[in-house]
Deep mutational scan, measured.
Amino acid sequence: QKPIVRVFLPNKQRTVVPARCGVTVRDSLKKALMMRGLIPECCAVYRIQDGEKKPIGWDTDISWLTGEELHVEVLE
Rank of each mutant, 00 (worst) to 15 (best):
R14N: 14
R6W: 03
R6Y: 03
E69V: 05
D27W: 04
T60R: 11
W58M: 08
K12V: 03
W64R: 13
G22W: 02
I56R: 01
L29F: 03
A19Q: 02
V45R: 00
K54G: 11
I56M: 09
M35K: 15
I39A: 14
V74E: 14
L33A: 02
T15A: 03
V5I: 09
R47E: 08
T15C: 05
V45C: 12
I62Q: 01
E52L: 07
S63A: 06
A19I: 08
K54H: 08
R6S: 05
G57D: 07
Q13F: 04
V7W: 00
L9D: 00
E73L: 04
V5S: 01
Q1D: 15
V45T: 10
A44Q: 01
C42D: 15
L9I: 02
V25Q: 00
Q1N: 15
W64P: 11
S28Y: 01
Q49W: 08
L70E: 01
P40R: 11
R6Q: 05
G57A: 10
C43F: 11
E41M: 07
T60L: 09
L38N: 10
V74G: 13
Q13Y: 05
G22F: 05
Y46V: 09
R47G: 12
P55I: 06
R26Y: 08
C21F: 06
F8V: 05
T24K: 08
E52F: 14
N11W: 05
S28G: 09
F8Y: 13
S63L: 04
T60K: 10
L33W: 02
R6I: 06
Q13G: 06
E69G: 06
N11F: 03
P10H: 01
W64D: 15
R36N: 04
S28A: 06
A44R: 10
V23Y: 08
D59E: 12
S28C: 02
A44M: 14
V7T: 01
M34W: 08
P40E: 14
V25K: 00
L29W: 00
E52C: 08
R26F: 10
E76L: 03
E76T: 12
L29N: 00
W58I: 08
K31Q: 10
C43R: 00
N11C: 01
K12E: 14
Q49H: 06
K12F: 04
Q13K: 04
V74C: 14
C43T: 11
R14E: 09
P18H: 15
M35W: 06
E69W: 04
C43M: 15
V5M: 02
D27C: 10
K54P: 01
R14F: 14
K2G: 02
D50C: 07
R47D: 06
S63P: 01
S63G: 11
L29Q: 00
S28F: 01
V5D: 00
D61A: 07
I4P: 03
S63R: 06
R36P: 06
R47V: 09
Q13V: 04
G51A: 10
E52K: 13
V25D: 00
A44I: 04
K30S: 05
V23M: 08
R14H: 13
V72E: 00
D61L: 06
D27T: 10
L75N: 12
K31R: 08
E69S: 08
D59F: 04
L9E: 00
A19H: 02
F8I: 08
M34P: 04
K12D: 11
V5Q: 00
V7A: 06
E41A: 12
G37V: 02
I56G: 01
L33H: 02
K54M: 05
V74I: 08
K31A: 06
Y46K: 10
R26D: 03
V16N: 06
G22L: 03
L65S: 10
P55K: 14
Q13M: 10
P40M: 15
E52M: 07
E76Y: 02
K53I: 04
W58C: 03
P18W: 13
L38T: 06
C42Y: 07
V23C: 11
V23R: 11
D59G: 07
K2E: 01
L9Q: 00
R14K: 06
K2C: 03
C42M: 12
G22D: 04
S63W: 07
R14T: 10
R26K: 14
V74A: 14
R14G: 11
R26P: 00
V5H: 00
R20G: 07
R20V: 08
R6C: 04
G37P: 01
A19V: 10
D59C: 07
C21N: 13
Q49D: 11
F8H: 11
I4L: 03
L75I: 11
L33R: 02
C21I: 13
L29D: 00
K30G: 05
Q49C: 12
G67D: 12
V16Y: 09
V25I: 13
E76D: 14
V45F: 13
G37M: 06
K2V: 07
K53H: 10
E41F: 02
P18A: 13
L29Y: 00
T66N: 09
K53G: 04
D50Y: 12
F8D: 03
I4M: 05
K12A: 13
V45Y: 07
R26A: 12
V23K: 14
G37E: 15
T24C: 04
V23W: 06
E41H: 12
T15S: 05
Q13C: 02
D61V: 03
V17W: 01
K53S: 08
V5T: 03
L70M: 11
E68G: 10
P55C: 09
D27P: 00
W58Q: 05
G57T: 14
C43L: 12
N11T: 03
I39C: 03
V7H: 00
P55L: 13
P55G: 03
Q49L: 11
V16C: 09
V45D: 00
P40L: 15
L70Q: 01
P18C: 12
P55Y: 15
I4N: 03
E73Y: 06
F8K: 11
D61Q: 09
G22C: 06
V23G: 05
K53E: 09
R47Y: 05
E69C: 07
K31S: 06
L75K: 14
K31V: 04
L38S: 05
F8W: 09
C21S: 14
T15Y: 04
I39R: 12
P10E: 02
E76W: 03
Y46I: 13
A19D: 01
S28V: 02
G37S: 14
T15N: 01
R6L: 03
C42K: 14
E41S: 11
V23L: 07
G67F: 02
L75P: 13
R14P: 06
K30D: 08
P3C: 11
G67C: 06
C43P: 00
R47T: 11
L65V: 12
G37W: 02
E52S: 09
K54D: 09
I56H: 03
H71N: 09
L38P: 02
A32S: 09
N11D: 11
V7D: 00
K30Y: 03
L29M: 07
S63H: 09
I4Q: 02
E41Q: 10
P55S: 12
K30N: 11
I48L: 14
V16I: 07
I39K: 15
E69Y: 07
P10N: 02
R47H: 06
P18Q: 13
R36E: 09
R20Q: 12
G22S: 06
E68R: 10
L65Y: 06
P3F: 13
T66E: 13
I39D: 14
Y46P: 00
G22A: 05
P3A: 13
W58Y: 07
L33F: 15
P18M: 10
L9G: 01
P40C: 13
L65I: 09
I48Y: 14
H71G: 08
R36C: 05
R14A: 07
I4Y: 06
Q13H: 07
E68D: 09
K53M: 06
E68M: 10
Q1A: 07
L29C: 06
P18R: 13
V74Q: 15
L75T: 14
D27H: 10
K12P: 00
I39L: 12
V16L: 03
M34I: 14
K31M: 03
D27F: 08
R26M: 15
I62C: 09
Q49R: 11
K54C: 12
S63Y: 13
R36A: 09
K12C: 06
C21Y: 11
C21K: 15
